[in-house]
Write a protein that binds this DNA or RNA. Structure first.
Lengths: 329, 329
DNA sequence: GGAGAGTGTGAAATCCTTTGCGGAGGGTTG
DNA sequence: CAACCCTCCGCAAAGGATTTCACACTCTCC
């Protein structure tokens, strides 16, 4: 059915060994032979069977990618970056969506591990212990989470919060609410840490609300508490929550940003599309994906050098319509 | 390194052949032996190397999935459905994002074809001819597009449009604009077809605007033309365009739905989150993904029976805040 | 002209699993 | 007791590509 190395060998009048060399280590083959083989291969539209190659080389040419929920607009951006970079490097990508289930996550790593050279774990929800366990199984790169010395790409959440708070205090806000994401979330903890630092540095006052589910409804639910707290600005754990806040504030007839400023985190595409558009701390999602693949590939090449590399990517505040001067009391 | 069938064989005191049979065709092995083998396999945490198995059986246990753009919120929904169903059937999924490039699409099919048992093509952008070409290479199921007798899952766009128009005319609208998506898009053509039928049946008037890119900016760009056309309602090719319309209308101070009603297509998650929330024709994205995998797996089992199966999924109008009674002239 | 170095190629082993074939052993039947 | 049948299991081949090893050949130099 499919064209194999033998077909090419026959067509070029050489042995399979020579075909293999002509294609993968051309310098070992006489120019004339090499060209003949390459021509035959092209004519027959031959490409080596990756499974067979993997069997002997021990490398599959595949990467695994595990995400908690593609429905969360944060992830498609990261996935696209991973996709693109992997394809450039001639790797194929296995995708698995866990539906936010930590158990499924561990299970999937185990299943995938045998079919891939390494796995990119996007915002993994499983425990540190489990994470270390699966990292022993196969090369792993963490995205948006840091655990011990495991290779990881993260965002500078602390600085992002600094930018957010600086922006708000410059606008005169002194009492600021934070709608927290899940307690178990690493990035939520980091954001809270950065927030407290920045608030303290600015001499402002922080009111913490939540935690809530990092979904639209979480924001909707938090809005009334935020209003009750009598703040002039609110920072949400992420954009989706912020959108929920905006929606509920609108329903209650509260003007944004005249009466209250709203600030999100992530800069999902949607944030620029709503009205008022959402001021938010932008994370370089695509770069994160690319950097993750780069790190993983480096790690496969040279485990010693990259085995515990961690990179932190910068963030950028996107000032839009949902933040404005604090109302004069 | 990894545990192979030989390790299990040694542990159980049998030959590799017996291990294989005990695990894949248990009825051919004596109960006692079978249990011993299964126990050893479990103890060693053995699972067969899929590449090696694929080499001999000709089946990889993998599916390919090609989408134009994960950033378009329509696709993650479909992908999740595919994901979930494939995992249930013990298939792994290769994902590729083409960034809306028809050439990359064809190229990716060719590359993936050798590593998978079949491919799900999501809203393919390539020409009919190319599509037939790649369908000859490997089993293929089309999602959201129909070409000849190729297996496909589609939505009933015509009926969706009927629902939309019925809704608007019931509200008293008589002059309705349509903001068209790309001319090359199959679903756009279908929607236009359904639209014309429904408009004619209702004795209303249709003004076609565009085509525009199926993105937020496309909607923004189309909004002024829509207003200039003096209509009381506008249907957009999809939700993202509709959101662009809403945004621009808001900027121009036009009240929705008091002055003009806006209606989208797809029911992406975002549609319920904006203000006013978007009335839209909902497509069962997840079901579409699941149905696609079901069809593909059926096709792999029994090509004759499923070789040209096509299914059309129903749609459901979601009435929300962006549509209301036509302003009395 | 023959030894030695160097280059280019093929044969064969290997990766791991599946499967057709056949052998061994036990049981049944005439 | 012989012939036969069944059941259960092992041997060996197959699948496609890579890689080691060794062979054959050319060229150089003494």
């Amino acid at each position: 059915m499919a064209v194999t190395i033998k077909d090419v060998a026959r067509a070029a009048g050489v042995s399979p060994s020579t075909v293999c060399r002509a294609l993968s280590t051309p310098e070992l083959v006489r120019a004339e032979t090499r060209e003949r083989v390459q021509r035959s291969a092209a004519e027959l539209d031959y490409s080596p069977n990756r499974a067979a190659r993997g069997l002997i080389t021990g490398r599959t040419g595949n990467l695994g990618l595990i995400v908690p929920d593609l429905g969360n607009p944060f992830f498609p951006g990261v996935v696209k970056g991973i996709q693109a970079r992997a394809r450039e490097a001639d790797y194929a990508v296995f995708l698995a969506d866990t539906d936010e289930d930590p158990a499924a996550e561990a299970q999937l790593v185990r299943t995938l591990a045998k079919q891939v050279d390494g796995i990119v774990l996007c915002s993994p929800r499983m425990s540190e212990q489990e994470l270390r366990g699966v990292a022993a199984l196969t090369p792993v790169v963490l995205l948006n989470r840091r655990v011990g010395r495991l290779p990881a790409i993260t965002f500078d959440n602390v600085d992002g919060m600094r930018q957010a708070v600086t922006h708000l205090t410059a606008l005169g806000h002194r009492r600021i609410a934070y709608v927290a994401g899940p307690r178990a979330s690493w990035s939520n903890r980091e954001r809270v840490r950065g927030l407290r630092l920045a608030i303290a540095a600015a001499g402002a006052e922080l009111i913490e609300v939540g935690p809530v589910q990092p979904q639209f409804d979480g924001g909707v639910a938090a809005a009334d508490q935020v209003l009750a707290a009598g703040v002039t600005a609110v920072i949400a754990y992420n954009d989706v929550i912020a959108l929920g806040l905006l929606s509920r504030l609108n329903v209650r007839g509260i003007a944004v940003p005249a009466a209250i400023s709203v600030l999100g985190f992530d800069d999902i595409a949607l944030s620029a599309m709503v009205h008022p558009s959402l001021t938010t701390v932008g994370l370089p999602m695509k770069s994160c994906g690319r950097a993750g693949v780069d790190l993983l590939l480096g790690l496969l090449q040279d485990p010693d050098r990259f085995g515990s590399t961690r990179r932190e990517l910068g963030t950028q505040l996107m000032v839009r319509g949902s933040t404005g001067p604090a109302p004069s009391a």
